[in-house]
Write a protein that binds this DNA or RNA. Structure first.
Length: 377
RNA sequence: GUGGGUGUCGUCAAGUGGUUAAGACCCAGGGUUGUGGCUCCUGUAUUCGAGAGUUCGAAUCUCUCCAUCCACC
C-alpha cells in the first residue's frame, strides 16, 4: 500500500538543518520548503486560481470547518470534490477544524468525544469529532488532510497543556482508524505541547509512533513572544522524523519562515499575506509598508522595485493607495497578488540557496534589506 | 427691497443658561500569523459665523453686522 503523499529530500544545507525536497501528491509535485496560500472558503480571497497558479503556488490550504458549515461537504462531494468545485487542479491541504475550535473561543465545549460548538453563521448547534472531521475531509477530497487536534491557548498552564496534548493523541488515533483511503489522501498528525519543550517531546513521541505520512507542529504563533516561538520551534522540529514532511501551521512572517526552514521545516501556511493585502499592507523587500499612508499619495513608483509580479510591473503606489482609499475591489486583488508572490518567490529563492549551499548567506542578505528584522542580527 | 428660515470639526449633524461641546462619515496613524477581518483600535473643535451685551456662568438669552437659503416684490 502506497501513501498518497511522500517527500524526497534532495539536498541538505551543510551548516543548518535546512533541507530542499520534493513533496509528491496525487495532484502534482511540490518543491519544498514551500509556502501555502490559504483559501479557507474554497477560494484564495480576491484571487483567481489561474493567478495563484501563475505566481508559482503548487499547493493551497482550505478549511473543513467553513466548508462543512457552508456549502456543506456533501455538496462539495456532489460537485466532484474540492479540486473540481473550485477549479484548482493542483494539490490541496485541508485543515481539520481543530484551530477553529480554538479561535472561536466562547462558542464551544470540549469533551473526550469531540467539540460541541455553535455555527458562526446561524448559531445552530454542531458537534465535531475526530471521525466527523475525517468524514468531512474525505468528502472534500484534499490530498493532505489534517488530524483533528486541540490547539492550546497561550499562556496555558502545564497541566492543561499536558491533558490537551494527550487528548490530541487519542483523537489522532481515532482519525487514523477512521481514515481508510490512504492512497488517495494522506493524514498528517499534529504535535502540540504549548511552550513546554518536554511536552513537545512527549507529543512528538506519541504521534510519531503512529507512523503517519507527515507531521505538523501546531500551537505556535498564538500570541507568544518571538523568542519563545523560535526556541520551541527549534527543539520541536528535531523531534520529528527526517524522512517525513514537516509542517509548521499558521506561520507567515518572513523571519518565521527563514527560521523554520533553518530548523528543518518543509511546509508553512498563513493567512497573513492575503489578510494584510485586504487591509492595505504590503510585504516588500525593504520591510512592510502601509499603502494607505499619506506619504504615498504622489509616489508613482512600484510597490517593490525588486519585484516582478503583475502588480509591481503595472501599477504605482499612488494608484494602489487610491484604490484602497476608494474601497475598490481591485485594491484587494492587486495587493493580494503581490504579497502572495512575495512569499512564494522568497521561498523559491530559499530553495535555490539551499541547493547552492548558501542558505545563511541568502538569509543575511534578505535580513539586511528588511528593516524590521535587520536589527535582529 | 420686504418677510421668514438657517449659521456648531473637512462633511452631516446632537446640544435650547451650569464643570473638560455627543455621534457618524471623512481624514491621520497603528494592529492583523492552521481567516467569524473590504476589519478592529487610537487620534483630530480651548471652541460653537463675527463683534458687543445680559449673567456668578452662554453654543444656548439680547443687539448689531456678515453669510446663506426660501418666498414675495
Amino acid at each position: 500500500m502506497k501513501n498518497a503523499v511522500y517527500i524526497d529530500i534532495l539536498k541538505k544545507d551543510s551548516r543548518t538543518r535546512a533541507r530542499r525536497g520534493r513533496l509528491h501528491t496525487p495532484h502534482g509535485t511540490i518543491e519544498t520548503p514551500v509556502f501555502m496560500p490559504v483559501g479557507t472558503q474554497a477560494t484564495v480571497k480576491a484571487m483567481r486560481p489561474e493567478e495563484v497558479k501563475d505566481m508559482g503556488a503548487e499547493i493551497i490550504l482550505s478549511n473543513t470547518y467553513h466548508l462543512y458549515l457552508r456549502p456543506g461537504d456533501n455538496i462539495v462531494k456532489e460537485a466532484g470534490g474540492l479540486h473540481k468545485f473550485m477549479n484548482w487542479d493542483r494539490a490541496i491541504l485541508t485543515d481539520s477544524g481543530g484551530f477553529q475550535v480554538f479561535s472561536l473561543g466562547k462558542l464551544r465545549k470540549i469533551s473526550e468525544e469531540g467539540v460541541k460548538f455553535r455555527s458562526y453563521l446561524d448559531g445552530s448547534p454542531h458537534m465535531l469529532t475526530p471521525e466527523k472531521s475525517i468524514e468531512i475531509q474525505n468528502n472534500l477530497g484534499a490530498d493532505i488532510i489534517m488530524a483533528f487536534d486541540e490547539c492550546a491557548p497561550y499562556p496555558a498552564d502545564r497541566n492543561y497543556v499536558k491533558n490537551s496534548l494527550e487528548r490530541t493523541t487519542r483523537w489522532l488515533k481515532r482519525c487514523r482508524d477512521f481514515h481508510k483511503d490512504v492512497e488517495r489522501q494522506s493524514l498528517f498528525g499534529i504535535m502540540q505541547g504549548g511552550m513546554y519543550i518536554d511536552l513537545r517531546k512527549q507529543s512528538a513521541e506519541e504521534i510519531v509512533d503512529l507512523d503517519l505520512p507527515g507531521y505538523a507542529i501546531g500551537g505556535l504563533s498564538v500570541g507568544e513572544p518571538r523568542e519563545i516561538m523560535y526556541e520551541v520551534l527549534n527543539e520541536a522540529a528535531d523531534f520529528l522524523p527526517q524522512d517525513k514532511p514537516r509542517y509548521v501551521m499558521g506561520v507567515g512572517t518572513p523571519d518565521h519562515l527563514f527560521q523554520g526552514v533553518e530548523f528543518g521545516i518543509d511546509m508553512f501556511d498563513c493567512v497573513l499575506p492575503t489578510r494584510l493585502a485586504r487591509n492595505g499592507a504590503a510585504m516588500i523587500s525593504t520591510g512592510r509598508i502601509n499603502i494607505k499612508n499619506q506619504k504615498f499619495e504622489r509616489d508613482f513608483t512600484p510597490l517593490d522595485h525588486e519585484c516582478d509580479c503583475y502588480t509591481c510591473r503595472n501599477y504605482s503606489r499612488a494608484y494602489l493607495r487610491h484604490l484602497y482609499k476608494s474601497n475598490e475591489i481591485l485594491s484587494s486583488m492587486l495587493l493580494s497578488e503581490h504579497n502572495l508572490h512575495f512569499l512564494v518567490n522568497m521561498m523559491k529563492n530559499i530553495r535555490q540557496a539551499i541547493e547552492e549551499d548558501r542558505f545563511l548567506e541568502y538569509k543575511r542578505e534578505f535580513y539586511n534589506k528588511y528593516e524590521d528584522y535587520s536589527k535582529l542580527l
